[in-house]
Amino acid sequence: MTKHETDEATGVDTTGHEWDGIKELNNPLPRWWLWCLYLTIIWGIGYMIAYPAWPMISGATKGVLGYSTRGEVAAEISRFEQQNADLRESLTQVDLSLLKDDPDLQRFAYANGAAVFRTNCSQCHGSGAAGGLGYPNLLDDDWLWGGAIQDIAYSIDHGIRNETDADAHWSQMPAYGEVLSSDEIDSAVQYVLQLSGGEFDVEMASAGAVIFEEQCSACHGADGKGSRDVGAPNLTDAIWLYGSDTAALTETVTNARFGVMPAWGQRLTRSDINAVAAYVHGLGGGE
């Protein structure tokens, strides 16, 4: 039971609430406080009319101002697109080899390219561009089809070994399982291990050298350093796209590999391609 009483010192009634002997006085609110309440109610009604408010079965009431957060985002995006229209145009026209002489455009290309990369490229090459088994690492200095900025742009534009772009990089390693015996393949693998500085069987490798000379050197070169004209990897370096152990190498020689990349020219604008080429080139491996 709460007990109402009148406080002696102030002449104000108590609310009847008491904590540890401290009683709450029931002082009246100022009248303007009440007006503020009415004002907020009026404001609230106005707000409900002006802005989306009431949940209905399919969506909410629209509000007479027609405001939507999606609309706001769209407006922001188009504002930025207008702002960047000139830069985008320059990036479409630019001679990529001269991009580094225009720091403002280069900065725009990096930022734009990073976004394009994350949206389109990171699925295979990884968000940090470090690639994975079968998907080249774009940070290192090893390039199958060339690491100059124009080469990178070409690879992105036309893609690799795809059916959709006649200008795509193209080459195909034979599946040597159908050509060589498994002993011959084993020997060739030992020779490749020798080329790349790995541990190898001396006897098999010398036999393998002959097979390599006959079968592989046309593309990978007599010294095994590969050829960018046909996207043939350098076999003497430390980087292996499909793994460097005997099993992986045997698999590669027996069944061959056939890495495909889409022709992004069919999906992205010229300026986006230039941007992402500049971005990839600037990741540390660019030549």
Binding site: G128, A130, L139, D140, D237
Partner: peptide, 17 residues
């Protein structure tokens, strides 16, 4: 840059960014 933590270059060097 820790994505990736390091990479290997063609001569076997290790590089961090």
């Amino acid at each position: 840059v820790r994505n990736p933590t390091f990479i290997m270059l063609s001569d076997g060097s290790i590089r961090n960014t």
